Simulated assay, not measured.
Amino acid sequence: MNKLTFLIPVIVVAIAALLSSIFIVDEREKALVLQFGQIKSVKEEPGLAFKVPLIQEVVRYDDRILSLDTDEIEVTPSDDRRLVVDAFARYRIADVVQFRQAVGIGGIGAAEDRLMSILNAQIREVLGSEQVTSDTILSPDRRALVERIRDQSRSSALALGLDVVDVQLKQTALPTQNLEATFARMRAEREREAADEIARGNEAAQRVRAQADRTVVELTSDASRESEIVRGEADAARSRIFADAYGADEGFFDFYRSLTAYERALKGENSSMVISPDGEFFNYLNGSGNIGGEARP
């Protein structure tokens, strides 16, 4: 009985010691086995692992890709046009031993503070270089700049045991105090461009209008010349016809001309004339005229 009483506590302690010596490494994490603060082993593969109870402890680190948002900072490109920039990075703990030695017990919080300092320094260095302007930062060409920031940050972060997977710029904007001045300058530039376009349009309109006026004058002149030619030819033809008619029958031609004169003189309401009846005007009305060379009765 006394022997059984002694064995039960021993068995319980043994079981407790065995259980405390076993730990599970999740597939999403890595683990370090520490003994009095010194690294004794690294557990990177998922599954069961063992440690010395009471003497050793297990420190776990996330093995997934993590995100870090940087604070807003101001950068001044080569054209002295200040920009407010903030970025985010994706990183992972690549070397847990190096990570533990670099940040100590501060863990992931201390590592992110130091990584943020690295990122901000690289952002200032790359975006503030002599070859970079604000237009380059705000254009699609900034992809090459972001890759430079990532590569240089990765080189610096390796000392922390971190691998910088990606860096992206979330915001590249003008400082608030510069926005109004920038908008005013942009507005002035657009107004100047609009005035230039209006001036060029007016100049083009004047050229088109002058060409149209010239064309009208030329067409009118050509039409007038052609009409005068046609009128002259018509008058000549009429005169020739009259001459031929007069030569063929002078009496009939005189009769025709007298009838035309009567028509014109007695046109409309003008039917009264004060004239001597013995005048030649009434030769064909009083029968003294002749037609075809014969006297009329």
Rank of each mutant, 00 (worst) to 15 (best):
P77L: 05
A245I: 01
V146N: 10
I241P: 09
R192N: 09
V217W: 04
R100W: 10
E294I: 12
A245C: 04
K30E: 09
V146G: 13
V208G: 02
V52N: 03
A205M: 10
G247F: 10
K170W: 00
G268V: 14
R28A: 06
S258D: 00
R142H: 12
F23W: 07
D213G: 06
T215Y: 11
R124T: 06
E72W: 06
A159P: 02
V58H: 11
V84T: 09
A248M: 12
G106W: 10
S239A: 15
I73L: 07
F242L: 15
F253P: 11
A237P: 04
R90W: 07
S155Y: 12
A87P: 08
V33N: 05
D62K: 06
A188I: 05
S117V: 06
D71F: 07
A195I: 13
L4P: 02
S21Y: 11
V126M: 02
F36P: 00
Y91V: 09
I105L: 08
A14I: 05
G128H: 09
R209M: 14
T70M: 01
F36L: 12
A237R: 14
E233G: 08
I229D: 06
M186F: 03
L127A: 10
T136K: 06
I275C: 01
I118K: 01
D63G: 11
V13Y: 02
D71L: 10
I15Q: 03
D71S: 13
A205P: 14
F99S: 11
A102C: 05
V58E: 08
L115V: 08
V25N: 15
S239N: 13
D95M: 09
G128K: 08
V10Q: 01
I118Q: 10
E45A: 03
Y262M: 08
A248C: 03
A181M: 04
A188Q: 08
S153W: 02
D71M: 04
A265W: 02
P9M: 03
V216Q: 07
E191R: 06
P277I: 04
I55D: 02
V216W: 04
E191W: 00
Q131F: 00
V230I: 15
K40M: 11
V25Y: 03
S129P: 04
R264F: 05
P140M: 07
L83P: 02
D163W: 00
D166R: 12
Q171T: 04
